[in-house]
Amino acid sequence: MKFAVIGGTGRIGSKIVEALTAAGHEAAPHARSTGVDLLTGEGLAAALEGVDTVIDATQSPTADDASADFFRAATGNLLAAAGKAAVRHAVLLSVVGVDRVPDLGYYRAKVFQEELFATGPVPYSIVRATQFFEYLEEIMSWTTEGATVRLPATPLQPMAAADAARAVADVAAGTPLHGIRDVAGPDVLPLDELGRVTLAARGDGRPVVTDDTAGPFAAASGNALTATDGTHLALTDYRSWLADRFRSGAA
Rank of each mutant, 00 (worst) to 15 (best):
A81V: 15
L48K: 09
L38D: 04
R128Y: 12
T62Q: 01
A27S: 06
L136Q: 05
A57W: 05
W142K: 14
V111I: 03
S33F: 03
V36P: 01
A85C: 10
P102H: 07
Y135F: 08
D69G: 10
P29G: 04
E145P: 04
A80V: 12
Y106Q: 12
K110V: 11
E138I: 15
V95N: 04
Y124G: 05
D52G: 12
T148D: 07
S125A: 04
G76A: 13
E145Y: 03
F70Y: 14
I139W: 03
R128A: 14
A31W: 04
S33C: 03
A57E: 08
R88L: 11
G97Y: 03
L39S: 13
T119P: 02
S60H: 07
H89N: 08
D56T: 09
A31R: 02
F112R: 05
Y106P: 13
V96T: 09
A82G: 06
R100E: 11
E115T: 15
S60A: 13
S67Y: 03
A82Q: 03
G97C: 09
I126P: 01
L136M: 08
E49G: 12
A57G: 11
G120R: 02
T119R: 01
E42H: 14
T75R: 00
A74Y: 03
A118G: 11
G83Y: 06
V127C: 02
H30L: 05
G76F: 12
P102D: 07
S125P: 08
L78A: 02
V51E: 07
A109V: 10
A27Y: 02
F133Y: 15
E134R: 08
P123K: 03
L104W: 10
R88W: 11
F70K: 06
E134P: 10
T143C: 03
F70M: 12
L92N: 05
T58F: 00
T58K: 00
S141D: 13
A147F: 07
L92R: 01
L48W: 04
V87W: 00
A28V: 13
E115Q: 14
I55N: 02
P29V: 06
Y106T: 13
G120W: 05
G50T: 15
Y124S: 03
Y124Q: 04
T144G: 06
A57T: 14
T119I: 07
A90V: 13
V54N: 03
G105K: 09
F117I: 12
E49N: 13
E115N: 13
A27R: 01
E49Y: 07
H30C: 06
H30T: 06
E42C: 09
L116A: 09
Y124R: 00
E114V: 10
I139V: 15
H89S: 08
W142E: 14
T130K: 00
